[in-house]
Amino acid sequence: MLYRFCFLLLLCLAGFSLQAQTILEGRVLNSQTKEPVPFATLGVPGRGIGTVADEQGRYLLRLPTLQDTLIVSCVGFDRQVIVPDALAAGQREFQLAPQEQALREVKVERRRVHEGLLGRNKEKADVLWMGGSSGKETVDDEWGWELGTVLRPTRRSYLEEFHLFLSANTYEHLRFRLNLYALEQGRPGRMLLSQDIQLVLSHQQRGWQTVDLRPYELLLEAQQPVVATIQWLQSEKTNPWDKYFAIPVTRQPKQTMVERENSQAIWTVHPLQPSLYFTVLTE
């Protein structure tokens, strides 16, 4: 009897929470061109609340209240801070200003360079790190999730290709963004990329997935650690009971793997390493 009472109370509380939820719908635009900013991220600082806009800059964001500050951001743009009063007043269109490139582009001169890799290039691991939401009709409140690893180049390294291994993928369409951050106090800090580099998968692709980075001419300096992450931007699947992807992760003594729920959530650090790496040319 007590169990049933507790269960009914939980259902009532859940129903009240859903009724109190505020749904924001709008667009994210380029402040100079007034064109959409595709796949801009929206998040509440320090909390697991956020989402990602679509190709046309349209977003749908579920907030418990309108009392939180909202951060709107995208690679290559200055982030915008939206205060609660602006949300309460009905602001739903957000404009981002383009920024200057943060990671220096270089022309690669093929002199005395050697092939190498940064990261983990093994398929097998101790556990599978799962992403997805079986049983939910939508997953837009989980887009923006990030997973990555700390990289410590010992020499100047020109990034040639990025590689990610998916041991499982039930999505018909799955999109990630590659992010690079400076390592600051053991966690991702300043964003280094100003170009939007994405990995798009279709038809439940699995195994090693590759992005050619040569067109971006990216350089990592020696002895300057960085954090490379993938950020979940979009996914499509008709069956709500079978939606997930998985990345192999292995245990290790050092705190190497980083993760956060969305673009403004708090980073967590783990003694693990995911199966992702870069092929590089080192001097």
Rank of each mutant, 00 (worst) to 15 (best):
L2D: 07
Y3C: 05
Y3N: 09
F5G: 08
L8K: 05
C12H: 15
Q19R: 13
Q19V: 10
T22W: 10
I23H: 10
L24W: 00
G26Y: 05
R27H: 11
R27V: 14
L29D: 12
N30F: 04
S31F: 05
T33D: 04
K34E: 14
V37F: 04
V37Y: 02
G43I: 00
V44H: 10
P45H: 01
G48T: 03
G50S: 07
D54S: 08
G57A: 04
L60T: 05
L61G: 11
L63H: 08
L63F: 06
T65P: 08
D68C: 03
T69H: 09
V75N: 10
V75P: 05
D78G: 11
R79I: 00
D85M: 08
L87Q: 02
G90L: 01
Q91C: 03
F94R: 03
F94V: 02
P98C: 13
E100N: 10
E100D: 13
E100T: 10
A102V: 11
L103V: 02
E105T: 15
V106K: 13
K107F: 12
E109A: 15
R110Q: 04
E115M: 13
L118I: 02
G119I: 09
E123C: 11
L128R: 14
S134L: 09
S134E: 07
K136Y: 06
T138R: 14
V139P: 00
W143N: 03
L147G: 05
L151A: 06
T154I: 03
Y158Q: 03
E160M: 01
H163Y: 02
S167L: 00
N169R: 07
E172K: 09
L174Q: 06
R187L: 15
R187S: 12
P188N: 06
R190G: 05
Q195D: 15
I197R: 07
I197Y: 09
Q198N: 13
L199A: 07
V200N: 12
L201W: 03
H203A: 13
R206D: 04
P215R: 03
L218M: 12
L218C: 13
A222H: 07
A222Q: 06
Q223F: 11
Q224D: 10
V227H: 11
A228D: 12
A228M: 15
Q231C: 10
S235D: 14
E236Q: 15
K237G: 14
N239T: 08
D242T: 09
Y244E: 05
F245S: 14
P248Q: 01
V249Q: 02
R251T: 00
P253R: 02
K254N: 06
Q255Y: 02
N262L: 03
S263W: 01
A265Q: 00
I266S: 12
V269Q: 12
V269H: 06
L276I: 03
F278I: 09
T282H: 07
